[in-house]
Simulated assay, not measured.
Amino acid sequence: MSRLFISDLHLDAGRPQTTAQFLDFLAAECRGAEALYILGDLFEAWIGDDDDSALAESVQDALAICSAAGTRLFVQRGNRDFLLGPAFAARIGAQLLPDFAVITCAGEPALLMHGDLLCTQDSEYLAFRAQVRDPAWQSAFLAQPLAARHAFAERARQASQIRQQGLKDTSQLETITDVTPADVVSVMRRYGVRRLIHGHTHRPARHALEIDGMPAERIVLGDWYTQESRLRDENGRLELSAAPAG
């Protein structure tokens, strides 16, 4: 049986085609799979498990059907959907994974991450991350009405787009938003693995590494709104592929 790994779908009401492709993927390619791992940013924004939008409802219903059919679901939080919580996981029949999760993949230990914590040159983002991951901040935010939370998410998205454009204008985007190689090696050493699988950077590739004289690998998943990227573990054979989006 196969296991599938995806990341960075950024599902949003403004991208209905991406949502349609994901629902088709759940109904077809995931049917009969042993497990599906979603490594963060399933949604463009997640304002809390009480979100009653049509998008939230339809995606959760489809994931619940996939889980009920026998595919085990595992979800990591990303930088966009860091508020995914236990009610969401219970509704779809999934297990929420920590920021660093070690599993057996293709016969050996592999570390799963969203990937944002590897982009250590982006100090402005890491400061924001520390703020919004604070339990007190999250409790205060979730106590606000849904409309206020939606407005905050929209402002945050607009601010992110403006910042990214500014980084492009100064030719800093590629460097700041990519991983720091030394930190990749450090985290793989810390968890005793020679394979790392992550998303976040939207730069799908398989990178050969050497750690302490031993061969290693970093596999990067791509996004879904331009390339519908996925990694398949089929009886110990790994294949990174992408279908045209849209």
Results as ranks from 00 to 15, higher is better:
R3D: 07
I6D: 02
S7G: 07
L9G: 05
L11W: 06
A13T: 10
A13H: 04
G14L: 12
R15A: 13
P16K: 09
P16D: 08
Q17R: 14
Q21G: 15
F22W: 02
D24W: 08
A27M: 10
A28L: 14
A28V: 10
E29F: 03
G32A: 01
G32W: 00
G32K: 06
A35E: 09
Y37A: 10
L39M: 06
L39P: 00
D41L: 05
L42R: 01
E44W: 05
A45N: 08
A45Q: 05
W46I: 05
I47F: 07
D49Y: 09
D50I: 10
D50T: 09
D52P: 01
V59E: 01
V59P: 01
Q60R: 15
D61P: 01
D61A: 13
S67A: 15
G70R: 07
G70K: 06
R72N: 03
R72L: 02
L73A: 07
L73D: 09
N79I: 04
F82A: 14
L83F: 13
G85R: 03
A89S: 12
A89V: 09
R91T: 05
G93N: 11
A94R: 07
L96D: 09
D99V: 11
A101H: 15
T104L: 12
C105G: 08
A106H: 01
P109F: 00
L111F: 12
L111D: 06
G115M: 01
C119G: 04
Q121W: 08
Q121P: 01
S123Q: 15
Y125I: 11
A127M: 13
A127K: 14
F128D: 13
R129I: 06
Q131C: 13
D134V: 06
P135G: 00
Q138M: 12
S139K: 15
A140M: 12
A140Y: 06
F141A: 09
L142S: 09
Q144W: 05
P145N: 11
L146T: 13
L146V: 15
A147V: 11
A148L: 07
H150E: 15
F152H: 04
E154L: 07
R155F: 00
R157G: 01
A159W: 00
Q161V: 14
G166R: 15
L167T: 04
K168D: 07
T170V: 10
Q172L: 14
V179G: 02
P181W: 01
A182T: 10
A182C: 04
V184K: 03
V184H: 02
V184W: 02
V185W: 06
S186L: 15
R189P: 09
R190F: 02
Y191I: 03
V193W: 02
L196I: 07
L196C: 11
L196E: 08
I197V: 14
H200I: 01
R203Y: 04
R206P: 00
H207S: 09
L209R: 11
E210P: 00
E210C: 08
I211M: 10
D212G: 04
M214F: 00
P215N: 06
E217L: 08
E217P: 04
R218F: 03
G222I: 03
D223T: 04
W224V: 06
Y225M: 10
Y225C: 13
T226R: 14
T226L: 12
Q227S: 15
E228P: 01
S229T: 14
R230I: 04
R230Y: 13
L231N: 11
D233M: 10
E234G: 09
R237H: 10
R237N: 13
L238Y: 00
S241Q: 06
S241R: 04
A243M: 10
P244R: 08
